[in-house]
Measured scan of single mutants.
Amino acid sequence: KRLCLVCGDIASGYHYGVASCEACKAFFKRTIQGNIEYSCPATNECEITKRRRKSCQACRFMKCLKVGMLKEGVRLD
């Protein structure tokens, strides 16, 4: 089984260019469509796991980008 490159949960397929789970796919889409900017309360190096993926949105979004999710893949309509 493929794992989500962002949080390590089971991937539902390839989304925005990267093997990812439904939760991270939806999080990435919401962030881009809403043009949301997050800031990390710590040092921008929070560990993102299935259990902790909700704890820091800034680091989760940075990890989405780091593993290769493409903003261009999100439709803005």
Rank of each mutant, 00 (worst) to 15 (best):
Leu3Glu: 11
Cys7Pro: 02
Glu45Val: 09
Tyr14Ala: 14
Lys25Pro: 15
Cys24Trp: 01
Leu70Ala: 12
Cys40Val: 02
Val18Asp: 04
Cys21Arg: 01
Cys46Glu: 03
Leu76Asp: 13
Met69Ala: 02
Met62Lys: 14
Ile36Ser: 04
Arg30Phe: 01
Lys1Met: 12
Asp77Cys: 05
Tyr16Ala: 12
Lys25Cys: 15
Cys24Val: 00
Glu45His: 09
Leu70Asp: 13
Arg30Asn: 05
Arg53Trp: 10
Lys54Phe: 07
Met69His: 00
Asp77Met: 05
Leu65Lys: 04
Ala42Gly: 11
Lys63Phe: 00
Arg52Ala: 11
Val74Gln: 12
Cys40Arg: 02
Glu72Ile: 06
Gly8Lys: 09
Arg60Trp: 15
Gly73Lys: 12
Leu70Asn: 13
Cys56Pro: 02
Val6Met: 00
Val6Gln: 01
Ala26Thr: 06
Met69Arg: 02
Asp9Pro: 00
Cys21Leu: 03
Arg52His: 03
Leu76Lys: 11
Gly34Asn: 11
Cys59Tyr: 02
Arg2Tyr: 12
Phe61Met: 12
Lys54Asp: 14
Pro41Glu: 13
Glu45Asn: 07
Lys1Leu: 02
Ile48Gly: 08
Lys66Gln: 11
Leu76Met: 12
Phe28Asn: 00
Thr31Ile: 06
Glu72Tyr: 04
Thr43Cys: 02
Asp77Phe: 05
Gly34Lys: 15
Thr43His: 04
Arg53Gly: 13
Lys25Ser: 15
Arg53Tyr: 09
Phe61Tyr: 07
Val6Cys: 02
Lys29Glu: 15
Cys21Asn: 00
Phe28Ala: 06
Arg60Val: 10
Cys56Ala: 01
Glu22Ala: 12
Phe27Met: 04
Tyr38Gly: 05
Lys63Ile: 04
Glu47Ala: 10
Glu72Asn: 12
Leu5Pro: 05
Arg52Lys: 09
Asn44Met: 12
Ala11Phe: 07
Val6Phe: 02
Gln57Thr: 06
Leu5Gln: 10
Glu72Trp: 04
Thr31Asp: 02
Gln57Ser: 09
Glu22Asp: 15
Leu70Phe: 10
Ile36Glu: 11
Lys25Asp: 15
Gln33Cys: 09
Thr49Leu: 09
Cys46Ile: 00
Arg52Pro: 06
Cys64Arg: 01
Gly34Glu: 14
Lys29Gly: 14
Lys50Pro: 12
Lys29Trp: 10
Ile10Gly: 14
Lys50His: 12
Met69Gly: 02
Thr49Ser: 08
Asn35Glu: 14
Cys46Leu: 01
Lys63Tyr: 00
Ala11Lys: 05
Asn44Val: 10
Lys63Asp: 01
Arg30Val: 06
Cys59Gly: 00
Gly68Val: 00
Lys25Phe: 15
Gln57Arg: 08
Gln57Leu: 07
